[in-house]
Simulated scan of single mutants.
Amino acid sequence: MNNQTDIDIVVRYLEDPENEQFKQQLNEWMQQDAGNLDIFLDMKAMWHGDPLPAPSTFDTDGKWQELNTMLDKVPVAMPAPLVNTRVVKMNRRYWWAAAAVLLIAGTWTWMGPGGYKTYATDMQQDSLRLPDGSMLYLNAHTQVRYARGFGKANRLVKIDKGEAFFDVKKNDALPFIVNAPEVEVQVLGTAFNVKAANSGVKVFVQSGKVSAAYKGTEKKVILTPGVEASLKHNGNAIDTRIHKKNNNILAWKTRTLTFDDTPLNEVVDALEDFYNVQITISNQQLADKKLLATFPNMSLDEVLDIMRKTLQINVTHKNDLVDIY
């Protein structure tokens, strides 16, 4: 938060959380920057009486002076006359909330955004057990965060990018929520996969039921086992697809690719996603050829060699480019 407008948005919502207009304004503001959600959650916690950071860590008097200086420096347009001007005196709690913004900003350099725990992977995969007992499996190039107090006041996980599989411990009193770019996924107890890509977000359910929705809208879908939803960035339509049991959505986790009379064009899609390469079928007459094979944790060259012999096709592989002809 860098100005009074941001403070107004959060405080108006905290004072009247049932107001639909305030909810919408808050939602739009939080989507402007990934760190805004962290700031809001910290302000909300302090608004409801959670303790502020230890005095030894923060210069409270200094922060108040910073706030007063900031408000004194708000520019005033001189040429235009003031019309219907009104002055609103902020109550003590409103001023305290504004000061809390500066306190939160002071934590940024040593705690990360709002004290959130952040986990990120590079080329490797990883897994971790969340405080509520749920398991989280991270694909390569994935970043997730969850708030302090996870499992007590909320069970909220934010996936900034990449792909993660969630095996959620059931808790009827505390829904498990995953925030992805523009999309919110909510469950009670289930196992599901979330992939946040450049084009949008995909949600696949292995067991249980999941609600996937565009943030700030009523557009949502209930997913059951075997169903995948695709939610595009800046979109409002939700596409769903039913997958047969032997699919490769979770191949990144199982490290096994399975093809059951799968057309070559679908095989290519799975290989591109699994090995992070670009594959072209130069001869489109080959696109309908079907592959029956299982590849347990094999290298791409091993897979391509088996495909070449099985389907009687030609394959070249150089760097991250593969050509089938």
Rank of each mutant, 00 (worst) to 15 (best):
Q25R: 13
G162S: 04
K89M: 14
L300D: 02
M307P: 06
T69V: 08
G208H: 00
G189S: 06
N234M: 06
L136N: 05
I159M: 13
K318C: 05
F295Y: 10
A191K: 02
Y137F: 15
P263C: 10
G115I: 04
G62A: 11
A120M: 10
W110H: 10
A197P: 03
L231G: 03
F166E: 03
L156F: 07
A251F: 08
N193W: 06
P79N: 12
F58S: 05
N84R: 12
K219C: 03
L130T: 06
N198W: 07
D6H: 10
Y146P: 03
A212K: 02
D320S: 13
Y214W: 12
A180Q: 01
L41I: 01
A212N: 04
L231Q: 01
I281K: 00
R12V: 04
N246L: 12
E272K: 05
H233V: 12
Q65D: 11
L300N: 01
P75E: 13
S230A: 14
P225K: 03
V187F: 03
N297F: 06
G200R: 05
G200Q: 08
T316H: 07
A196D: 11
D72L: 08
K289N: 00
F165G: 03
W108T: 08
G149R: 06
K117F: 09
K209G: 01
Q31K: 09
L300S: 00
T294N: 11
K215G: 02
Y94G: 01
R308N: 10
L291G: 01
I9P: 00
G49Q: 08
H317E: 05
I177M: 13
S56W: 11
Q124M: 14
N84T: 06
V315Y: 05
F274S: 04
V157I: 07
V187R: 00
T217P: 01
D261N: 13
K290V: 11
D239Y: 09
P181C: 09
M298L: 12
L138I: 08
G189Y: 00
Q124A: 15
P263S: 13
V76I: 14
L292E: 08
E302W: 02
L231R: 05
D50H: 13
L286S: 03
R93P: 00
V11W: 09
L67C: 01
M30A: 00
M135R: 09
R86N: 14
Q32Y: 04
P55D: 12
F192E: 05
T107C: 01
S230Y: 14
V203P: 00
W29K: 06
M30R: 06
I324K: 00
N36Y: 07
A293N: 07
